[in-house]
Design a protein around this nucleic acid. Structure first.
Length: 477
DNA sequence: TGAAATGTTGGGGCG
DNA sequence: ACGCCCCAACATTTC
């Protein structure tokens, strides 16, 4: 009885419970990927994600070919119809997949499971994307957690997640392969020259994910706590897009970190390492979006629904383009545009600027990030923006307003990050790099900077903006 | 996983 | 020696 393995956000062969279950039968296995973006509307993949997906599917096909199989790709308006067609074409009697947790996807998958069973097919779904599925974690009173530290403490007290399954060494091919669309048919690559920066910055795919994880553990795991907040360094794991697409699973990361820590003599506190805590935030984000399914669009704290956000097309555009006049913000927004990624510290700074200096709705930020991030993930993006706007679970209080100059001075003291992404002010000395509008005229001239021409004046005065934000906050207090 | 305003303390200069 | 002031450094409160 052959089996369709329906790949989704689990584009890997190792640590893939659905694939392992399909392979375990020794019957034919038909790997399929169905691109049906309209089903995920309004959160169908953005531009940067599509680029990544294109590359990742190509790699997955390569990995499958290495074990005697291949990936069947379909563009579709309706995943259910396509699954039924595929099953008919190759005589499959069973469909298996790993679960996802976004509200719209859960609803779709539920319908598909029911319909497939009514059509006489067996179905089974598995847990592959999280250490702990959202409904398995409850507070003592039975509700979902809303405070990260309590949530993660609880998770760490549970049994360790099972070690990852090894990849299958061979997959039995079906007698007849179903017809596959060529990858280009999905039209995932952008028309413009955008991908050049993405290609230079990233290597998608499961193999690259594992190489990157090992490199991170060797080079940065020990110093992660002290280096992760400095965007000029390469101190973070850069696992986020790989995790989003499931090119690597959190169980693999958990056990790799454990192995590394124990091999280096840290037997007691490895679970408390800052790196695994960040994995915990990813888990928490999924926990929240599952239990509070409206939060991608609406603030979790209801009173924020009446926050007096402004409307300012020019301000939004300046932010998106990296032309706010605040170097650390502009550097972040340009890194995002060029590489599809932004350092997490800078996401907080740039996010705070949009929401609290420009007083623009956090949903605008979430939208822009959704289209430009290669790691755009509904759970993490929602948590991040609700955190920065102060309207989410365990969020930063609204009055915690980042000062872009102070943050720049603190976390990019040597100016490496700003100089890399805002080269037109690279000639400024460190003392003025994060506040060029205050630099003496001769300093600006010596650096070849003409404010208003080669680099913008600040779009808004931070001290004034801060007061306005606090006044606006009074409206919801 | 802030920042600014405000309060407190203590050292040193000075009459 | 003492009181007074200034102010930096640190702590606390407030937004």
């Amino acid at each position: 009885m052959s089996t369709l393995i329906w790949f989704r956000h689990d584009l890997r062969l190792a640590d893939n419970p659905a694939l392992a279950a399909a392979a375990a039968t020794a019957e034919p296995v038909i790997p399929v990927y169905i691109f049906a973006p309209r089903e995920e509307s309004p959160w169908s993949p953005g531009g940067a994600s599509r680029w990544w997906l294109h590359e990742s599917l190509s790699r997955l096909d390569g990995n499958l070919r290495a074990v005697g199989s291949s990936l069947c790709i379909r563009a579709s308006e309706d995943s259910l119809t396509t699954l039924v067609e595929l099953a008919r074409e190759c005589g499959a009697r069973r469909v298996v997949w790993n679960r996802r947790y976004e509200p719209a996807v859960i609803a779709r998958d539920q319908k598909i499971k029911t319909a497939l069973r009514e059509a006489g097919l067996e179905t089974a779904s598995y847990s592959g994307a999280l250490l702990h599925e959202p409904w398995t974690i409850r507070t003592q009173s039975g509700g979902p957690f809303q405070v990260f530290s309590a949530y993660w403490r609880h998770c760490k007290e549970l049994d360790d997640p099972a070690p990852p399954e090894p990849p299958p060494t061979t997959l039995r091919a079906p007698a007849a392969w179903p017809k596959s669309h060529p990858l280009d048919r999905l039209e995932l690559l952008p028309k413009r020259a955008w991908p050049a920066g993405l290609e230079a910055a990233w290597t998608p795919g499961s193999d690259a994910a594992h190489v990157q994880l090992e490199r991170f553990l060797e080079q940065s795991f020990d110093d992660y706590g002290s280096r992760r907040d400095r965007p000029g360094l390469r101190g973070t794991s850069r696992m986020s897009p790989h995790l989003h697409f499931g090119e690597i699973g959190p169980r693999e990361i958990w056990h790799a970190a454990r192995r590394y820590a124990l091999a280096h003599g840290r037997h007691s506190s490895w679970k408390d390492s800052q790196f695994l805590t960040e994995i915990g935030w990813r888990e928490f984000a999924h926990h929240l979006v599952f239990h509070f399914p409206k939060t991608p669009e609406e603030p979790l704290r209801a009173k924020y629904a009446r926050f007096p956000w402004r409307s300012d097309a020019a301000g939004l555009r300046a932010w998106q383009r990296g032309a706010t006049g605040y170097p650390i913000v502009d550097a972040g927004m340009r890194e995002l545009w060029r590489t599809g990624w932004m350092h997490n510290r800078v996401r907080m700074i740039a996010g705070s600027f949009l929401v609290k200096d420009l007083l623009l709705p956090w949903t605008e930020g979430a939208r822009w990030f959704w289209d430009t991030l290669v790691d755009a993930d509904l759970a993490s993006n929602t948590l991040g923006w609700q955190w920065v706007a102060g309207c989410g679970a365990d969020a930063a209080p609204f009055f915690r307003i980042f000062n872009p100059t102070t943050q720049g001075t603190k976390f990019d003291a040597a100016g490496d990050y700003v100089r890399r992404w805002v080269p037109e002010i690279a000639g400024l000395p460190n003392e003025w790099l994060h506040r060029p509008w205050e630099a003496p005229a001769p300093v600006l001239e010596a650096a070849g900077v003409t404010l208003g021409r080669t680099y913008p004046f600040p779009v808004i005065d931070h001290a004034v903006a801060r007061q306005a934000a606090l006044a606006a906050f009074a409206a919801v207090k």
